[in-house]
Amino acid sequence: MGKDVTFRVFRGEPDEDGDSCGEMVDYTVEMDEGMVVLDVIHQIQTEHAPDLSCRWNCKAGKCGSCSAEVNGKPRLMCMTRMSDIEEETPAGQPVLVKPMQAFPLTKDLVVDVSWAYELNKTITPLAGPAEFDWNFQQNEADRVQEFRACIECMLCIDTCHVLREHKLFDEFAGPRFFVRLANLEMHPLDTEDRLASIKDEYGIGYCNITRCCTDVCPAGINITDNAIIPLKERIVTEYYDPIAWVAKKIGLRK
């Protein structure tokens, strides 16, 4: 209690071309025990800058609203404890807080993620049973329940170099949506086939398995190993496996 902390926070808006335009501003506030980064941001709003923009909702890692880059690392501000931040920040240096860099800026710590909502709409939805008569086991549920834990914080998108550096937003769906696609493809009640779109429209081939997305996932989803790689394997079997190709030709496989 009583210790001061200084945050260096990005303040700004896009310029006429849509590029980020602003400055890093220092704010010092007093800390209380057990604070997280989001508490400090709220303290700054209350004491210094009521108009500092930031998204948040649940404050417990369940909604995925308060994504930002703290000391250069994409994370949820509500689940990042100040005790950890103090440890990693060099003595005498301020804590750096910036918005997610992969998305266009709205203002301060808020970015425009409408790309994600538009892309989501293009995914073929679940084709479930018409009647209430299904039945499946927990082990089948387990396979997809991991994917259901996604809170759509978009930190995986923010960190993915295909999107962050190469800006292939029109050709590549990104980790969050491979998680959704894997969920649908492995869903015990689904009868659709989305492999062609995963290969072509959603460009899964661009992913070269650097596992950055898995590293930043606050829901602990093993995105690379459990979602992306199995989808890649299915595509290889479907489109590039010569034995499967022959089997299909002679009618042994659909």
Binding site: P129, F136, L189, D190
Partner: peptide
């Protein structure tokens, strides 16, 4: 569930 929710299962798969 028909729309995609995956609730935990009973041993009978319900």
């Amino acid at each position: 569930e028909q729309w995609g929710a995956i609730f935990d299962r009973t041993p009978a798969g319900l």
